[in-house]
Nucleic acid binder design. Structure first.
Lengths: 186, 186
DNA sequence: ATGGAATGTCAACGCCCGTTGGCCTACAGT
DNA sequence: ACTGTAGGCCAACGGGCGTTGACATTCCAT
């Protein structure tokens, strides 16, 4: 294991400031200078520890969705469970919002987003959909609805979406996700 | 009426170049200089005709969704019709993709997006959903799925979504939109 | 034909960016 | 106690940006 470094606190401060700035400003407007200011250090420290701006973003956008195992629960609940989980994940911190913002304007961000959904959402769907060969497609359909909700609620802030309670969102979106996962292919 | 100006061709060239750049690069990376280069004129002409970068974006993002009237057709087809229409609209040109890109990183873009969906999608839903008072919420749910599809297909380019044919997308998303519009509130 | 407005070019401005390299400072291993 | 090294700051660089104002050209109404 790697031993603790004296600079660990600084590294963490940079990473936290970076996540917030990327989330609220997007890749271009989140400047290294502003991130350094938030972290209370010099911009050159960012370069020293993360190489360059792309490296910083790569480090700041490492994400674990921590999706639940869907295998053990009644098949007709997986939609609601999945929507609930994503909603909580999105409300807890703004890393995912940041990733969404950056994924839209930056190819590295888009690639990161593709990887996360392929590696973390894909496997979970494999166990619950009728034909495993169709798992990627069904996961992508789920992603389209989940990300659309995140986009309209946390980024574009369409008023009717913002005003809905989490319970209402689960009630509306749960059956949709459910159908994308388990229904016969149309 | 305003008479034709000698500079109309230049104005149009600027607008077309701006739409393409905003669509492919987003607001920040779409520079006035690159737009002027594409249009074959000097950057200062952009300032003369559109005031500043924000004015140029406002002019470049005027959009007519041209949504069909849903009142006249069988209630159980409105979902498929709506999805088909949006899909065609999105494939025809990249103005909507551009608006989506800009709406994510730029507050003016987000406001434009909110206005378009409120003014153009809202009224259409009013005629087909059970309780007119719920029309905005149902329109927003529809927007969440439609925009999520656009996001994953045209911006993030999730491979399984890109590979789907328009017919397959309509078959999967049509019932979802249908339910958001016409089903009983859960 | 001519004066003036419309159209367009050119060079420059001030600003902020990512990034670099040099220089102090303070700690840790010996 | 001494020294090497990691941590940190500072000043500067080259470059691209949005924007501006002075100047040249073209066209049209008179």
């Amino acid at each position: 294991m790697t031993t603790a470094r004296r600079s660990d606190a600084t590294r963490a401060a940079i990473l936290e400031a970076a996540r917030e700035r990327f989330a609220s400003d997007g890749y271009d407007r989140a400047t290294i200078r502003s991130i350094a200011r938030d972290a209370g250090i010099d911009p050159s420290m960012v370069m020293r520890y993360y190489g360059n701006k792309e490296g910083l973003f790569a480090a700041a956008s490492e994400i674990e969705l921590n999706l639940p195992e869907l295998g053990g629960l009644p098949a007709r609940h997986v939609g609601a469970v999945l929507v609930t989980h994503f909603l909580e994940r999105w409300e807890r911190d703004d890393v995912l919002t940041g990733l969404l913002r950056v994924g839209v304007t930056n190819e590295a961000g888009a690639e990161r987003m593709r990887a996360i959904f392929a590696q973390q959402l894909g496997p979970v769907t494999r166990g619950v959909c009728p034909d495993p060969a169709e798992a990627p497609r069904r996961a992508a359909l789920v992603a389209s609805q989940i990300l659309g909700m995140a986009l309209t609620r946390y980024v574009l802030r369409l008023p009717p979406v913002v005003e809905m309670t989490p319970e209402e969102i689960v009630a509306w979106l749960g059956p949709t996700v459910q159908r994308y996962l388990t229904a016969e292919a149309p």
